[in-house]
Computed example of a mutant assay.
Amino acid sequence: MSRQRSMETIEKSEYVTIGELVRLTGVRYSTLKFYTEEGMLHFEQAEENLTRRYKREESVERITYIRQMREQKITIPEIKAILKSE
Rank of each mutant, 00 (worst) to 15 (best):
M1F: 15
T25R: 01
Q45V: 14
R23I: 14
Q68F: 05
A81D: 02
Q4A: 14
T17W: 13
Y35T: 01
R62L: 12
T9S: 15
I63R: 00
Y29Q: 00
R53F: 13
E47W: 09
V27M: 03
Y29T: 02
E57H: 11
G19K: 09
K12L: 06
S30E: 11
E37A: 10
I18N: 03
Q45A: 15
P77R: 01
S2P: 14
E47I: 14
G26A: 05
L32W: 02
K55V: 07
G26V: 08
E11P: 02
E61H: 15
E57T: 12
T75E: 05
S13V: 12
L50N: 10
R23P: 07
E78T: 10
T17D: 05
R62I: 06
S13G: 01
E47T: 08
Q68M: 09
R5K: 06
E20Y: 13
L24V: 13
L41F: 03
L83Q: 00
G39L: 05
T25H: 05
H42A: 08
E71Y: 05
R5C: 13
I74Y: 02
R52L: 13
R70F: 11
V27R: 00
N49V: 14
E61I: 09
M69H: 08
E47A: 11
E37L: 09
E20F: 09
K12Q: 13
E58S: 09
A81N: 00
I63M: 03
M69L: 07
V60N: 05
E37N: 11
R28L: 10
E47N: 11
I82S: 03
M40R: 04
E78P: 14
L41C: 02
V60A: 07
I18K: 03
K33Y: 11
